[in-house]
Amino acid sequence: MNILDSIIQRKKEEISVAKSHISIQQLKDSEFFGKEKFSLKQNIKDKNGIIAEFKRKSPSKGIINNQSSPLEVVSAYENFGASGISILTDKDFFGGNFEDILNVRNHINIPILRKDFMVDEYQFYEAKSIGADVVLLIASCLSHQQVQEFTALAHELGMEVLLEIHTEEELNHFNLEIDLVGINNRNLKDFKVDLQHSVQLKNQLPKGVLSIAESGIYSIENFKYLTEQGFDGFLMGEYFMKNKNPDKAFEEFISNTI
């Protein structure tokens, strides 16, 4: 069993427990469920295209930063021009939780991506209830039919969809209802990074689809290369979070690239 299989197995266990404690109706009754959402798709077009991530740890890197305050970091991301915020909500493998979104939602006015492994419709109601504007669908975890059904549900709930792919086969998961396509530079099964592979996949997307380069962007040179290759957006977390002051790292990055 690879790490992705382990994560999905654990995720399904978590969902089962969550369903037994909180009903979908209770999620619908939450503070944020009825609030208007921000559009990441529009912000990618209008701003610098960076989706800046708050991330404590990962299976491949271990602890990245367990000291910084979510509110302090994401507020700086917004202040220095990020198009959107990505926040991990997986606890066991990434050290995330719902509180990281709940505690910042009322303090920032740009879209928040709930970054997690979405494998059950219940999670979409969760995402809406905590104030997420966008959900991530990882093609390697889902069937083509699930991507279609989950996309329809997300839109019904007023959220946008970022579809993540890594292989040519996963290009088949795309449909015209998808808002943005993320191409993961890192293989989730073995965590190897290949920027050129991502460029090749991007070039096979239908014309006009907004493309997001995800993960493995370790330097300004990586960023500039992917920009030159035509990516519309960039999901970046570790580059900033590995610093003692991620907010300062983001400010410096912006000053050197944008």
Results as ranks from 00 to 15, higher is better:
Ser30Gly: 11
Leu226Lys: 12
Asn175Arg: 01
Asp92Asn: 14
Gly208Trp: 03
Asn187Phe: 14
Ala82Glu: 10
Leu210Arg: 09
Phe93Lys: 03
Ile7Asn: 11
Lys224Pro: 02
Thr227Asp: 11
Lys248Asn: 12
Gly216Lys: 13
Glu168Gln: 05
Lys115Glu: 03
Ile165Thr: 09
Asp133Ile: 02
Lys28Ser: 11
Glu160Val: 01
Lys28Trp: 05
Phe250Leu: 04
Ser129Tyr: 12
Lys115Gly: 11
Phe54Asn: 03
Cys141Thr: 15
Ser219Asn: 06
Asp194His: 10
Ala52Trp: 07
Lys248Pro: 03
Ile44Pro: 07
Tyr225His: 10
Lys115Ser: 07
Asp100Cys: 01
Asn43Ile: 03
Lys192Cys: 06
Gln200Ser: 05
Gln26Val: 02
Ile87Tyr: 04
Leu153Ala: 06
Ala52Gly: 13
Glu252Asn: 15
Gly49Phe: 01
Leu71Asp: 04
Phe98Val: 02
Asn65Ile: 01
Asn2His: 06
Met236Trp: 02
Ser6Cys: 01
Lys19Asp: 05
Glu221Asp: 11
Leu163Ser: 12
Phe32Gly: 13
Leu137Gln: 12
Thr89Ala: 10
Thr257Ala: 02
Phe174Tyr: 14
Ala18Asp: 10
Val134Lys: 01
Lys207Leu: 08
Asn65Ser: 03
Gly230Ala: 09
Val17Pro: 03
Glu169Ile: 14
Phe80Tyr: 15
Gln123Pro: 14
Ile101His: 05
Gln146Ser: 10
Ser23Glu: 00
Lys28Leu: 12
Ser129Ile: 13
Arg10Thr: 13
Asp190Arg: 04
Phe234Glu: 04
Asp247Gly: 15
Gly182His: 09
Asn256Val: 01
Leu102Gln: 12
Ile212Ala: 07
Leu153Gly: 13
Val147Arg: 01
Leu88Met: 15
Ile85His: 06
Glu149Leu: 14
Tyr225Thr: 00
Gly230Gln: 02
Met159His: 13
Glu14Leu: 12
Pro59Ile: 04
Ser219Pro: 07
Asn43Glu: 13
Tyr125Ile: 03
Asp133Gly: 11
Asp179Cys: 07
Gln200Ala: 08
Gln200Lys: 09
Ser140Gly: 04
Glu170Gln: 14
Ser255Tyr: 05
Pro70Ala: 00
Lys37Ser: 15
Thr151Tyr: 11
Ser58Tyr: 01
Ser6Gly: 06
Leu40Asp: 07
Gln146Tyr: 06
Met236Ser: 01
Asn79Trp: 07
Cys141Tyr: 06
Phe191His: 07
His166Ile: 06
Phe253Tyr: 10
Gly49Trp: 01
Ser20Ala: 13
Val161Gly: 02
Asp120Ile: 12
Val119Ala: 12
Cys141Pro: 06
Ala152Leu: 15
Phe117Ile: 12
Val193Glu: 09
